[in-house]
């Protein structure tokens, strides 16, 4: 082995220009280390809530993961050099699992009642991330997650970095402990243990140090019943940040009760929601009839999404509006058939 090592050193020396820093991960690590902050929030029991934040502006805008521990008067944010700042929570979205903080000079009193005056913040006090492109990632590409899991880093100590590969991009359908996880959008699945306590809210970067996602909390996927390590795509994060900074934190998305459009499919249902999705009856002159659905067809997927029970069928159908094209795959006579159905206005 030593012989090979010498040979390797010789070759590297001869070429000269090859990354003198060695590994190649250091470039990415350099990029993250000054742009990640440690966040301390409300006390939960005896221990203070802690987490990680990602700097996205020179004047101290920090995006992090939703946590009730952030709902506190005494938020503290510690930068890479150990400087302590205060912070205001601008917005928190449980649905997106994101929160936005604005750092401010520390303003506290010590035990003797003397006021601690923190460092002032200017427009370019901090180095920060500009969003990269999460769609450029491919399965097998290296990713690095930075954060402060288990609070191992304190003050000016550098944050912890985990290396893994980008696994896949998928829609999250998950639960956290016993509750359904509110976020339902796309996530980047990471092949590395990144979602330890305290780590969520840190950035996920590619090999070139480009910011591609925000590390999320541990959830259990309903598709596989396994714990997932994931990050929210940077595009989702920035959309959220824009919605908060440009329009204030007012809720502008009204939740509309969705109604299932008329399709004319009567399913075989016996009161139990987990029945297989067999077509029991197709109404005359209905969209389903026009689409070519027949009695006893087994509906297996709608627009590429698996349909395993009637509950899912109705849930997916509710997402469509009258006039949309709905691609349905059915099993009929042991063969798959692709049909497309155009639902109409709901009828009473």
């Amino acid at each position: 082995m030593r012989r090979v090592l010498e040979l390797a050193l010789m070759v590297v020396a001869a070429v000269g220009s090859v990354s003198e820093a060695g590994g190649g991960f250091d470039q990415a690590i350099d990029a993250v280390s000054t742009r990640v902050v440690k966040v301390y929030g409300l006390k939960a029991g005896l221990s203070a809530g802690y987490g990680t934040g990602t700097l996205i502006s020179g004047d101290g805008l920090v995006v992090t993961t939703f946590s009730l521990l952030l709902d506190s008067e005494n938020l503290r944010v510690v930068t890479h050099d150990g400087t302590v700042y205060g912070a205001d929570m601008l917005d928190m979205s449980e649905e997106l699992q994101l929160a936005l903080l604005q750092m401010k000079p520390r303003s506290e009193y010590d035990r003797r009642g003397n006021r601690i005056v923190g460092d002032p913040i200017g427009a370019d006090t901090f180095t920060y991330f500009t969003p990269g492109d999460s769609h450029a990632m491919y399965p097998g590409a290296w990713v690095l997650a930075a954060g402060n899991p288990f609070k191992v880093s304190q003050g000016a100590e550098p944050i912890s970095v985990t290396v893994g590969v980008f696994s896949t991009r998928t829609h999250l359908d998950a639960r956290r402990k016993t509750r359904d996880f509110p976020y339902r959008g796309e996530v980047l699945v990471i092949d590395a243990i990144t979602s330890n306590p305290g780590a969520p809210g840190g950035p996920l970067v590619n090999l070139d140090g480009e910011w591609i996602g925000l590390v999320g909390r541990v959830v259990e996927s309903k598709r596989t019943h396994t714990n997932l390590n994931y990050a929210l795509p940077v595009e989702t994060v920035m959309d959220y940040v824009r919605s908060v900074t440009e329009q204030g934190s007012e809720e502008d998305v009204a939740t509309i009760e969705k109604v299932e459009p008329y399709h004319g499919i009567k399913l075989f249902e016996m009161g139990y929601q987990k029945n297989l999705v067999y077509v029991d009856r197709v109404k005359r002159r209905s969209p389903a009839k026009k689409a070519g659905l027949r009695k006893d067809d087994l509906i297996v997927s709608i627009a590429g999404r698996s349909v395993r029970d009637s509950q899912t069928f109705h849930a997916i159908m509710r997402e469509y509006k009258p006039g949309d094209k709905v691609d349905i795959v059915v099993i009929r006579d042991e063969k798959l058939h692709n049909l497309s159905l155009i639902p109409e206005e709901p009828r009473e």
């Binding site: 399965p139 980008f166 998928t170």
Partner: peptide, 16 residues
């Protein structure tokens, strides 16, 4: 390198 399609979607998931 392990490949799976357990998450659905067009691309397989990859672990190394």
């Amino acid at each position: 390198i392990a490949l799976g399609r357990g998450f659905g979607g067009a691309e397989p998931s990859v672990t190394v």
